[in-house]
């Protein structure tokens, strides 16, 4: 497969902080429409990998291509976001002072330039789309509440809703079910699987039950590079993976 056909292509990406190698010649390929789960022990470089893809951290060396042609390493965060890469943070980050509705309206795919936003008023389609996302994320009753007043699980869903509103080609989802009940976890898994049909998704997660629920290809990171790749069953059987991560 040539790089042209990939959605995201990382090759030999390294990052170090004051001598500590957070990413060590990491290579990873995501195809269009693919969902991938990333697992790995603490400090394996999962969050740094997301930082590098979204432009928060610049890699020391290596190539990152989006859709096989756009070099992400020279772009700033907003530009990368506007290419169609959305991100959900490990700790849910929503705009606490804004209502749920406003959070979604801010995320909605629309012109991002200041003068456009100054004169923006929501069209009927915009409102319909927000209503739809409120339904999907079950936040309709909360639409006029400030996001700061939501429960932890609701904030997680709101952030996923914000990702949906952005309508990105690639979603980076960092620990989406942390702090959720089993029922919520299951719902989240369903939601992500629905999304995966139209978008590519990278999910970073510790919760093995959830990863199994997703039933997708798994990449194991260790010390900043890929340790193993394959189905969850395959990697679970890998001796190295057991040693560094799963334990005996």
């Amino acid at each position: 497969m040539s790089t042209e056909d990939t959605l995201l292509y990382l090759d030999g990406v390294s990052v170090s902080f004051d001598g500590f190698r957070a990413l060590n010649s990491l290579s990873l390929v995501i195809e269009p429409g693919e969902m991938r789960a990333i697992i790995g022990p603490n400090g394996a470089g999962k969050t740094t990998m997301m930082d590098v893809i979204t432009g928060k951290t610049r890699p020391d060396t290596g190539t990152i291509l989006f859709e096989g042609r756009t070099d992400l390493t020279s772009l700033r965060e907003p530009a990368i976001a506007n290419l169609g890469i959305g991100r959900k943070f490990q700790r849910p980050t929503v705009f606490e002072m804004h209502t749920v509705w406003d959070n979604l309206e801010l995320s909605l795919k629309a012109p991002r330039r200041p003068l456009k936003t100054l004169t923006y008023s929501a069209t009927r389609e915009d409102r319909a789309r927000i209503e739809e996302i409120l339904d999907i994320t079950r936040l309709s009753p909360r639409r006029d509440r400030p996001a700061g007043s939501l429960s932890h699980g609701e904030k997680q869903w709101l952030e996923i809703g914000m990702l949906l509103a952005q309508d990105p080609k690639l979603l980076l989802v960092d620990e989406p079910v942390a702090g959720m009940t089993d029922a919520e976890t299951e719902q989240t898994a369903h939601l992500l699987k629905d999304i995966a049909g139209k978008h590519s998704v990278i999910v970073v997660e510790h919760d093995m039950v959830f990863v199994r629920e997703l039933g997708v290809k798994v990449t194991v990171l260790h010390e900043g590079s890929v340790l193993a790749e394959g189905s969850l069953d395959t990697v679970s059987a890998n001796k190295q993976v057991i040693d560094v991560y799963l334990g005996r």
Binding site: T54, R76, P78, A81, L106, R112, R113
Partner: peptide
């Protein structure tokens, strides 16, 4: 930084 990841040039 969250706003930046939404694509706004803050």
């Amino acid at each position: 930084s969250r706003v930046r990841f939404l694509g706004y040039e803050t």
